[in-house]
Amino acid sequence: MSEGNKLVRMANQIATFFHSQPASEGPDGVATHINKFWEPRMRRQLFDIVDNHGGEGLDVLVLAAVPLIHRPPPAEVPAASR
């Protein structure tokens, strides 16, 4: 399973939980969980899926949460890789 597919599955599992909660809590709940527990690298990958792949495979609740998720700064390229 590719890293992107695993990340989509994880995000969708969070959304599945929040589908059982009141609708008004869904996007904020998904975003709060991702902001609190996902490291910047994972959030960068999520934004890559949204920005470059149209959010392919992501639950509608995850997509609704995207504006509330903290976008991390771009990863720094190590000097040796330049």
Rank of each mutant, 00 (worst) to 15 (best):
1 M>W: 00
2 S>T: 14
3 E>N: 05
3 E>S: 12
4 G>V: 05
4 G>A: 14
4 G>D: 13
5 N>P: 01
5 N>L: 10
5 N>A: 13
6 K>T: 04
6 K>V: 03
6 K>G: 01
7 L>T: 06
7 L>P: 01
7 L>H: 04
8 V>S: 08
9 R>N: 03
10 M>H: 07
11 A>H: 03
11 A>F: 01
11 A>K: 01
12 N>C: 00
13 Q>V: 02
13 Q>E: 10
13 Q>Y: 02
13 Q>C: 01
14 I>C: 08
14 I>R: 01
15 A>Q: 01
15 A>I: 00
15 A>K: 00
16 T>C: 00
16 T>N: 05
17 F>K: 13
17 F>E: 13
17 F>N: 13
18 F>H: 11
19 H>N: 06
20 S>F: 03
20 S>Q: 10
21 Q>M: 03
21 Q>E: 03
21 Q>D: 00
21 Q>C: 01
22 P>D: 10
22 P>L: 12
24 S>Y: 15
25 E>C: 12
25 E>V: 11
25 E>I: 08
25 E>M: 15
27 P>L: 06
27 P>R: 10
27 P>Q: 09
28 D>F: 09
28 D>L: 14
29 G>T: 12
29 G>D: 11
29 G>M: 07
30 V>Y: 03
31 A>I: 09
32 T>R: 15
34 I>L: 12
35 N>V: 02
35 N>D: 06
35 N>F: 00
35 N>S: 02
36 K>M: 09
36 K>Y: 04
37 F>Q: 14
37 F>Y: 15
38 W>K: 09
39 E>H: 10
39 E>K: 15
39 E>L: 09
41 R>V: 08
41 R>M: 03
43 R>T: 09
44 R>L: 11
44 R>E: 07
44 R>P: 05
46 L>C: 03
47 F>K: 10
49 I>C: 10
52 N>M: 14
53 H>E: 15
53 H>L: 12
53 H>K: 15
54 G>H: 15
54 G>K: 15
54 G>Y: 14
54 G>C: 14
55 G>M: 06
55 G>H: 03
57 G>L: 13
57 G>I: 11
58 L>K: 08
58 L>P: 07
59 D>S: 10
59 D>M: 01
60 V>H: 13
60 V>K: 14
60 V>Y: 07
61 L>T: 10
62 V>R: 10
62 V>A: 13
62 V>Q: 09
63 L>N: 09
63 L>W: 08
63 L>D: 11
64 A>M: 06
64 A>Q: 13
64 A>D: 14
65 A>I: 04
65 A>Y: 01
65 A>M: 03
65 A>R: 04
65 A>E: 02
65 A>W: 03
66 V>W: 05
66 V>F: 09
66 V>N: 09
66 V>A: 09
67 P>K: 01
67 P>T: 00
69 I>W: 02
69 I>E: 04
70 H>T: 12
70 H>W: 00
70 H>Y: 02
71 R>C: 01
71 R>K: 11
71 R>A: 06
71 R>T: 04
71 R>I: 04
72 P>N: 11
73 P>T: 12
75 A>H: 07
75 A>D: 11
75 A>P: 05
76 E>Q: 14
77 V>A: 05
78 P>G: 06
78 P>V: 09
79 A>P: 08
80 A>F: 12
81 S>N: 06
81 S>I: 05
81 S>V: 06
